[in-house]
Design a protein around this nucleic acid. Structure first.
Lengths: 238, 238
DNA sequence: CTGACTTGTCACAGACCTGTTACCCACTTG
DNA sequence: CAAGTGGGTAACAGGTCTGTGACAAGTCAG
């Protein structure tokens, strides 16, 4: 299935109240977060650059029409993405819409599933565009936790903590050896670049701190292997 | 007008000879370089990963149908882009097409200009994806702000400031790492070409100045990651 | 079972890092 | 030349890490 882009903010501009309501409902039930405006002026006030993933514009509206609105929005935020929705099936209109940079052009009466499909495709594309640059990111799942090494963050159940540099390093090493021994010598060497008695003790302290960070999921353990190192593992669910 | 993507290679798969010929002609007169195949098997032999900008697939064909072909093509090259063309207007077919990762879905009989428009849009998008970084103008949306690097301008709600050169550079780096850590070492190196203690301090001062510039939108934060760097991010609206 | 050694944890102080304001100097502009 | 701008340094007041010592608890060999 197409992966859903949950909670995406959508700016919806539609003067017809019942149509606007219908669209809002459809989008909401699909997990989107639509914002309905009844005319172009309201939409311009409501618009915030970068906030909305997508704008859904009715073409025929009293006052400022969809095309004029699109032009204004693009002036404010050149990277805005929009899609026209119209009852008119004039070819010229459609061409004009695409010329303005529309991503798509949908005729009313529209089919609900088709509309959702096209929106999904657009947002998926959007996401691909943005995440392109975030490559090189290192992430791990640890039981119910999620650990993002590059962002130096540990999250659990929508809570997120920023870890310190050393904690981050130690946890990374543990994760990379998940279910197998992380040798203390190796670890100390990698973290501090050298090893001596005190650095080893310091490493122990970090193990302790990380245990505390991970204690919300009791299935996670960091077992000690006497004189050798530690093993991070996640027990099977009972 | 929509900028034309000249000479783009298009793989066209259509079993109906006259339709295939018609499409080929249309695409050629528009400056594209289409390659016509009369069935899926031929298309698979003809296909070269990365060579075609776009595949135009008829859905209903004897032997391998368009969907099966799309699946095979995607196996060979996961980044392939395709578009279905079909006489069937069954909703399920269309949904299936999108689920397979289609960029668009066009019903026959199609309108020549609409088809070309949609193809143009797709190719333009393709280009945008690839040339994002090479383009001359660099612009970013930061919450309610809009930052134009090339013009060295920061604007908010119709107010616009011209930034200083260094502010501009620092903000650009922050934007390019939005939501991930901008490492202070990297940043200092890129901005000054070398690094020492004082340049690091100077960088801090610019962070401070930029925070002040961006303070009109309270959702924007530049978080410090102790000893490592900074993260620019925009919080969800309440 | 004992004693030597290893590990878990706490608390804390000092080192180091950051945010900010003020200031100074070089350069530009009118 | 006077005023203004940009950008670096200084200085200071916090703030955050993180080694280390202390001590309790655990492990192991003999």
């Amino acid at each position: 299935m197409i992966p859903m882009r949950v909670d995406a903010k959508i700016l919806l501009v539609e003067d017809d109240v019942s149509m606007g309501y219908l669209l809002t409902t459809i989008l909401q039930t699909e997990g989107y977060d639509p914002r309905l405006c009844i005319d172009g002026e309201t939409a311009l006030k409501e618009f915030i650059p970068g906030y909305y993933e997508l704008c859904l514009l009715d073409v025929m509206m009293p006052g400022m029409d969809g095309f004029a609105l699109a032009k204004r929005l693009r002036e404010i935020d050149p990277s805005v993405r929009f899609l026209f929705l119209t009852a008119r099936s004039l070819k010229e209109d459609m061409l004009k819409g695409f010329a303005l940079g529309a991503e798509d052009y949908i005729r009313k009466p529209f089919d609900k599933d088709e509309l959702l499909c096209r929106i999904n495709v657009m947002l998926r594309r959007n996401e691909a565009l943005q995440e392109e640059s975030v490559s090189g990111s290192l992430r791990f799942s640890i039981g119910e936790y999620h650990f993002d090494y590059t962002r130096q963050e540990l999250s659990w159940n929508s809570e997120t903590w920023r870890m310190t540099e050393k904690e981050n390093e130690v946890l990374r090493l543990l994760c990379m050896h998940q279910n197998s021994i992380l040798r203390r010598d190796d670890a100390v060497e990698k973290i501090y670049g050298k090893k001596d008695y005190f650095l080893g003790r310091s490493f122990d302290v970090f193990i302790s701190r990380i245990r505390k960070l991970l204690q919300k999921d009791p299935r996670i353990t960091i077992e000690n292997v006497f004189k050798v190192g530690f093993i991070l593992s996640v027990k099977e669910r009972a």
